[in-house]
Amino acid sequence: MCLAMPARIISLLENETAIINLGGVEKQISLALLDTEISIGDYVVVHVGYALTRLDEVQAQQTLALFAQMQSAKEETK
């Protein structure tokens, strides 16, 4: 369940709100649920107008690197 998308923070506003950008679409969302500091350029996971968490970009890169690693390992065995 729960449609949520990673989107980039492009500006921080008053009252724990911010503007996100997803593929050029901009929307105002609430940061009221976040327990971490947020800065412009961070990615957050957005659901029903709220950021649920900051996306951990290091972890995201690690997951993608793991895929790449699996692929190169596979190519070597060919």
């Binding site: 997803l22 593929g23 679409v25 929307k27």
Partner: peptide, 9 residues
């Protein structure tokens, strides 16, 4: 991309 983005959202 912007249409795809709005649809994802």
């Amino acid at each position: 991309e912007v249409v795809a983005g709005a649809c994802e959202l």
